[in-house]
């Protein structure tokens, strides 16, 4: 089994919150991804078994959403918002300086697999532009130095 017992029990708990089993598929994929880092074909097959659907139906959902991955990913995901308010506050130049700092072209990951750098549309933090998302955390009111420090502090 690829999905751990702990994750399985969390999935069961999620299922209990929905009138139809399938409703819990999205939370379940989140749980699996948090556990395994990505949703592999084996994970999809096990999820399909839990939800009594076809593995390909799990993969349909995984491929539909940008936040789900079907292949191994970098340790940390960093997304710089490039929507209008952030752009007006310099996010595009911020992004290009982070690109050269890390030596990557967004969207792309560093060679050591430590950081994936990409850009994202509005994350609803326009009042604190420019901003970026590091994994599940928002970092707001950024300047280049502050952003570089945050990236450097990320572990392997």
């Amino acid at each position: 089994m690829v999905i751990s017992d702990e994750t399985r029990s969390k999935i069961e708990e999620a299922i209990s919150k929905y009138p139809q089993k399938r409703g819990a598929l999205l939370p379940a994929i989140h749980l699996v991804q948090a556990d395994c880092g990505h949703v592999s074909k084996e994970c999809a097959a096990e999820l399909a078994e839990i939800f009594e659907i076809l593995p390909i139906q799990v993969m349909e959902v995984v491929s539909f959403y940008n936040m789900f991955f079907d292949s191994p990913q970098a340790k940390h995901h960093v997304y710089v918002c490039t929507n209008l308010p952030c752009s007006l506050r310099g996010s595009r130049s911020l992004l290009s300086q982070l690109e050269s700092h890390l030596g990557v072209t967004a969207p792309g990951a560093t060679e050591d697999g430590r950081i994936f750098l990409g850009h994202e549309e509005c994350l609803g933090a326009c009042g604190y532009a420019p901003m970026m998302r590091v994994d599940d955390e928002y970092h707001e009111d950024l300047d280049v130095e502050k952003a570089k420090q945050i990236l450097d502090s990320l572990g392997k």
């Binding site: 390909i56 139906q57 993969m59 349909e60 491929s63």
Partner: peptide, 9 residues
């Protein structure tokens, strides 16, 4: 048999 699906968005 459900072999086919639409991937991505």
């Amino acid at each position: 048999t459900g072999e086919l699906a639409i991937f991505n968005r």
